[in-house]
């Protein structure tokens, strides 16, 4: 009962108390969402599997035919997790010959950012050798998940 609580805590702002409660609930919900969903690989929808995204990425100089798996990362300067993710992918690239890694500065390619509907950084696109979009992820991927995705599409065959 907000009214009762306000009555008990005299001198405090009722609106403030209500906003504080809402803020706490929102933060808890957001933390839960981040912990479970952030950085997850979302498999490409049928309709965007070929054509659109790949064409845009190829316009940025991405050549999927050169590797079993090409990972394209969009980053901005004001993005802490981007650096962590970049370092992780560079490390994976050094140890998995089938992996190609392309880093794109989102700010200098806003046209592509809009066409690909990149909303957050880092956003990663995963392309196979045929140029099919396997999926995308937003937010820093969990290290073990990233390694698993990369290994599933490269490691075994090389």
């Amino acid at each position: 009962m907000p009214i009762g609580t306000v009555g008990l805590v005299r001198g405090m702002s009722g609106t403030g108390l209500a906003v504080l409660a809402v803020a706490l609930v929102l933060t808890a919900a957001a933390s839960w969402w981040l912990r479970t969903r952030d950085g997850r690989l979302r498999t490409a929808q049928e309709e965007e599997g070929v054509g659109g995204p790949t064409a845009v990425l190829e316009g940025l100089g991405v050549r999927p035919a050169d590797a079993d798996l090409t990972v394209v990362q969009f980053s901005t300067a004001f993005c802490g997790p981007c650096r962590t993710t970049r370092a992780r992918l560079q490390h994976l690239q050094a140890t998995r010959p089938g992996l190609a890694y392309v880093h794109v500065d989102a700010e200098s390619h806003l046209e592509a950012v809009r066409e690909l509907d990149v909303r957050r950084t880092p956003t990663l696109f995963y392309l196979d050798r045929e140029g099919r979009l396997l999926g995308r992820s937003s937010g820093a991927p969990r290290p073990e998940e990233l390694t698993a995705v990369v290994d599933a599409h490269t490691g075994a065959r090389s």
Partner: peptide, 21 residues
């Protein structure tokens, strides 16, 4: 602020690209 304190997630940073877009 609380999200940043509890999880390290930087909401302000995430907004950057949204604003630039």
């Amino acid at each position: 602020a609380l999200l940043n304190a509890a999880t390290g997630f930087c909401l302000g940073c995430e907004l950057y690209l949204t604003v630039r877009r």
